[in-house]
Design a protein around this nucleic acid. Sequence first.
RNA 1: UGCCGAAUGGUGUAACGGUAGCACAACGGUCUCUGACACCGUUUGUCUAGGUUCGAAUCCUAGUUCGGCAACCA
Length: 574
Amino acid sequence: MGNTNNNSAGTDNGEAKPEPLDFIREIVAADLASGKHASTVTRFPPEPNGYLHIGHAKSICLNFGISLENEGGVCHLRFDDTNPAKEDVEYVDSIKEDVQWLGFDWGKNIYFASDYFEKLYGFAVELIQSGKAFVCELTLDEIAGHRGTPTKPGTNSPYRDRSPGENLELFQRMRDGEFADGTRVLRAKIDMASPNLHMRDPVLYRIRKTLHHRTGNKWCLYPMYDFTHCLSDSIEGITHSLCTLEFEVHRPLYDWVLDNVAIDSRPRQIEFARLSLTYTVLSKRKLLTLVEEGRVNGWDDPRMPTVSGLRRRGYTPASIRSFCKTIGITKFNSLTDVALLEHSIRQDLNDTTPRRMAVLRPLKVVITNFDEDKVEELEAANHPKDPEAGTRSVPFTREIYVERADFMEEPPRKFFRLGPGREVRLRFAYFITCNEVIKNAAGEVTELHCTYDPETHGGNAPDGRKVKGTIHWVSASHAFEAQVRLYDRLFTVEDPNKEDDGKTYLDHLNAESLEVIADAKLEPGLAKAEPGERFQFERLGYFCADAGDSQAGKPVFNRTVTLRDAWAKQRGKG
RNA sequence: UGCCGAAUGGUGUAACGGUAGCACAACGGUCUCUGACACCGUUUGUCUAGGUUCGAAUCCUAGUUCGGCAACCA
C-alpha cells in the first residue's frame, strides 16, 4: 500500500529516488515546504444521492491517500446534503460502508453540510448586509432569460438594487416559510456581463419545502452547492479542496464567496480529471437508470462499477487501491482500459487465493479400469507457489466430470487436451487415455471412456513420460452442485457514453453480461465456502461466494475475473 | 461565436531545458502437474507549423483537435 510516509524507492547506488508525485501532491508538498500549511486537511464530499463507484474510489484514494502520506494529515468525510429532494439515508449508509471497506478511516471527522445550515445562513446575511446579495423574485425561466448566453452578456434583475434592509427582511421571511417554492431566491450580486456564466449573479439559496433526511422540516430554505461547498471547506479548515474538472469554471465563484465573507481559513480548490472506464458508465444518473429500469439487479449487482458491485463481484480493496495508484492523477480527460482494473485484481488474487477444482460445463468420463466402488483420496496443493497454503484431499472415482472444452474429437494441431487416443494428466491425479467416444442419437458427445495408468498416481509418470496437457476434474458422485454466475462486461462497446447515430448507452447493453450455470460440478470441499470467500477455480478464473445469495452449506459463486487464456487467443486467430 | 482546461505508443502514466521511461495490452519465446503465475524479448509515441537555445515533450507564438460551462443539481 502506498499509505506511508516513505514514498521513495531505493536505487542501485543507494540514493533515494523519490517516486514521482502527481501534480496535486506536488502542490501539497510545496505548500508544506513553504510553510503555508503545517499539514494537510482534505475531504471526500459525496452527495448522498447514489452509491459510490470506482470513480469515487479514485477520489477517495487521492484525498485519504494524501492525509496518510503527510504527518498529521487528516481527511474528512463530508456529506454534501443540500438538496433534500434527491438525497436519502440509504445512500449515506452505503457510502460510509464503502469508504471503510476500501480501507480508509475518517476517525471523528464525519460531517454533514446540513450541520452548517445555520452558519451558512449567517454568511448569507453577511453578504446581504454588505450589499453583495439580493432577494430575486424572477421566475426560473426569467432568470434563465436574463442570464444571456456564452457570447451575449446577461441583463440585471429588476430586483438587483433592493436595499440591504429590504433584502434582509425578505430573506428572513423566506426562511420563515412565508413564500412558496420557486417564488424567490437569494442571489449573489456579481456581474451579469461576466464571460463566466457562473458569475452572472448566481443563485445562492432556493426555497424547497421538502423534508430533509437529517434536518427534517427545520428548513425550507436550502443553500446551493457553490455557496455551501467553499464555506464548508473553510469551516472545516480544509487546506486542499480536490474536485473534478467540471468544477473548474466554478472556481472563480468558490473564491468570490470566500473573498466576500469573514472567514479564518482559506482552502484552495484544485481540479483533476474524473475516471472513465471502457465498457461501462460512471455517471450516477446512468447508473440510477440501470437500477430503476431493472437492467441490473440493484446497485450492488456484480456487473455494476459501483464499489458495492465490485465488492460482491469479488474485487478486493487492495486491488482497487492498486488500480487507483496505477491510473494516476492528471487533468487529461482519459478513457482507461478496463484491462487495467482486471490486471489489478488478478495480480492480487493470484498471490492470495486458494486453488480449487470446478467443472462448469461437464462432460462425463468413465475410467474403465478403475474399480467401481473405489474412492481414492488424492492430495492437492492449495497454492502452486506457496507451500504454506497447505494441501487438501479430493476424492477420485471411476466416474468423473471434465470440462467439455477440454475434449475435441478432431483436435487441431495446437490442442493439448483430450481427444481420441490422447493421453492427458488429470490434475493431482493420474494420466488418462481416451479410448472411446460415446454419442447420443443426435451425434453429440455424451461420455468418454478412458483408462488410467495406476503408475502415474499423483500426476507423475515414473518412466518420465510427459503429457502436454493437464486438465481439471471433479468426481461425479462427490460433486457439489452449485449455482455459478459468469459475468461479462455490461456494455458491448468501449465507450457507451458516445451517442452515435441516435443510440444511447442503453442500446449497447450486453445481453450476455450474465450467464447463470445452475448446477456446476464443484469439488466437495467448496460446499463449506463462506459468503465472500474467494477461490481460484483452476484454469477458469477467480470466484467469490456471493455475499447476498449464498446460504449455509449452499454457496453461490460469482466469477470475479477469468484467468488469462492463451489458448482462447490462439483459437480466436483461426 | 464567449469563457475555462487538456493534448506523450493501442490504453494509462513518467520526464520539471540534457539518452523519451514504466505499467497494461498486443506479438514471439522460455518454464510449467493451471495454455495460469513467473521469466526473456519484440512492435508501437512527444497534435501541427514556426521561433528561442549548443540542446525543446518541456520555454514562446500561431493553429488543430478534444473536453467542460448557459438546474432554483452536485
